[in-house]
Design a protein around this nucleic acid. Structure first.
Length: 456
RNA sequence: GGAUAGGUGGCAGAGAGGUGAUGCGUGAGACUGCAGAUCUCAUUUAUUAGGGUUCGAAUCCCUACCUAUCCUCCA
């Protein structure tokens, strides 16, 4: 298995530090607003990563943080006159709801920053003792000049950063890149006590405190969006390595490409984002998830309706093949299912190429449709087994069917409809089709009678 | 200005030195009460540009141009 490592800009053979155990950390959200599809892209992808690693025999501890204290939360809370705690919990619930909707259920532990204040303070103390910190009027800062490898992950050097065009001129910071570890409380803001006075933690140290708590000072995979490489991940590396003295924080750095809308990054500040609810009006969760997995995770993916439509068509095609397999009773088609399974595995082992895996699944579907009449029951079982295996990490085909009407009822209604059609009472027969559609059952009339199937 | 990743048909996306897959879309036809699905055929000059290496380049090298992201809020 090969993984593209941002740190080295190359694909490297994956090997966990400790046998088959994998410690994976992915930067989660700051719950100050609804999660958008860009966020979802990242979390859907890492869900596949965790699931695929598990299906490949690894034991994965997938840790995700929640930045539930932050300037934006405080600002937003003040605007809406609820407490920052209430605000963050409400958006956190919404986030968890989305995770459920899109079958993102592989995270072992969600760690909230506010539950780890003690560990954060401990880390700052160590940094202080080692001379990595200094105090300004508004907080305790980390001194990046003391950490030699600052900028290694992003290819930045501190000299160039100084002339960054967007950097606001610093007040008193020793270096533009210095970041806050502990922010002193301003009147009315939530706070925790610390040796430096009342305040709250800075962003970067929340994650290092959490990962050190559960993983120790070096772990296997650190993931997140591409936009977090600088400065967030540089900051994490600077903090943790300064504390541990080790030559690394994580062995593999994985970053997902941005989801764009009309060629521009989906983001709150540009106000060009889509939230799940916008899409769920017209598309199912698995169609959306399929669309997200249709692009290679590191590439820019421009969001489009075409992509969703294509996903729907392809997914329906796969489901059609699945129905054929479920009813197969031919004499043998000679389809070599194993080669497709190998193809899926090969794609996934190559830096989690979900696009390639989906391609192989479509190849299976195509073969099955082509050999519909000759496909034997035994062959079909093999084919279904492969689809189930692939779906154990892709999670787009077999979605739990809730409150669906029984197949017996459907058959009964269909035979009634058939009679109506023979009598050319089409208005009545169309009513039945419509009613079934609303219950999640799709009917397709063909030469050999009507076929039906459950939508997800 | 610096950094990172890229630039292949209308769109998505393979190809990793030996006349450019595939899917979607589109067009035509078949089927059909309608819808949908499916089938058949088609989509004729798609590799950003210019140099170089080579018998041969999408692929390797150089230059230019373009796009996205980051340069202290960001998945």
């Amino acid at each position: 298995m090969f993984i593209f490592n941002t740190m080295t800009s190359s694909k490297e053979k994956f090997k966990p530090i400790n046998g088959k155990r994998v410690k994976m950390f992915v930067c989660g959200i700051t719950p100050y607003d609804s999660p958008h599809m860009g966020n979802l892209r990242t979390f859907i992808f890492f869900d596949v990563v965790a699931k695929y690693l598990r299906s490949s025999g690894y034991e994965v501890f997938y840790l995700q943080n929640i930045t539930d204290i932050d300037d934006k939360i405080i600002t937003r809370a003040n605007e809406t006159s609820v407490s920052s705690l209430e605000l963050s919990i409400s958006f956190l619930n919404e986030y968890m709801e989305s995770m459920k909707t899109f079958s993102i259920d592989s995270v072992s532990l969600y760690a909230r920053a506010t539950f780890h204040i003690t560990e954060i303070i401990e880390q700052i103390k160590i940094l202080e003792d080692k001379g990595y910190t200094y105090k300004l009027e508004d907080g305790i800062y980390f001194r990046i000049s003391k950490f030699r490898d600052y900028g290694k992950l992003s290819g930045q050097n501190t000299e160039a950063l100084r002339s960054g065009i967007r950097a606001t001129v610093s007040e008193d910071k020793e270096n533009q890149g210095d970041f806050v570890l502990w922010k002193f409380q301003k009147p009315g803001e939530p706070f925790w006590d610390s040796p430096w006075g009342k305040g709250r933690p800075g962003w970067n140290i929340e994650d290092t405190a959490i990962t050190e708590e559960y993983f120790g000072d070096v772990y296997d995979i650190h993931g997140g969006g591409l936009d977090l490489i600088f400065p967030h991940h540089e900051g994490e590396i600077a903090i943790m390595r300064s504390i541990s003295g080790k030559d690394r924080l994580a062995n593999f750095w994985m970053h997902t490409g941005m989801l764009t809308l009309n060629g521009q990054k989906m983001s709150k500040s540009l106000n060009n984002f889509l939230i799940p609810a916008d899409l769920l009006k017209d598309y199912s969760p698995s169609e959306i998830r399929y669309a997200m997995l249709s692009a290679q995770y590191r590439s820019i993916a421009d969001f489009s309706v075409e992509l969703l439509k294509e996903s729907r068509v392809n997914l329906n095609y796969i489901k059609r093949a699945l129905r054929i397999m479920e009813n197969a009773n031919g004499n043998g088609s000679g389809i070599d299912f194993q080669q497709y399974k190998d193809g899926i595995k090969e794609s996934m082992d190559d830096d989690f190429n979900t696009r390639g895996a989906l391609r192989s699944i479509l190849d299976i579907a195509e073969k099955v449709v082509e050999k519909e009449t000759s496909l034997s029951h035994e062959e079909a079982l093999k084919g279904i087994e492969i689809l189930k295996w692939a779906d154990s990490f892709l999670s787009v085909i077999f979605i739990e069917k809730s409150k669906q009407i029984s197949s017996q009822t459907v058959e009964t209604l269909l035979s009634i409809r058939e009679d109506l059609r023979k009598k050319k009472l089409f208005r009545e027969s169309d009513e039945i089709r419509k009613a079934l559609k609303e219950s999640g059952v799709t009917i397709e009339d063909g030469k050999d009678g009507s076929q039906w199937f459950y939508e997800q």
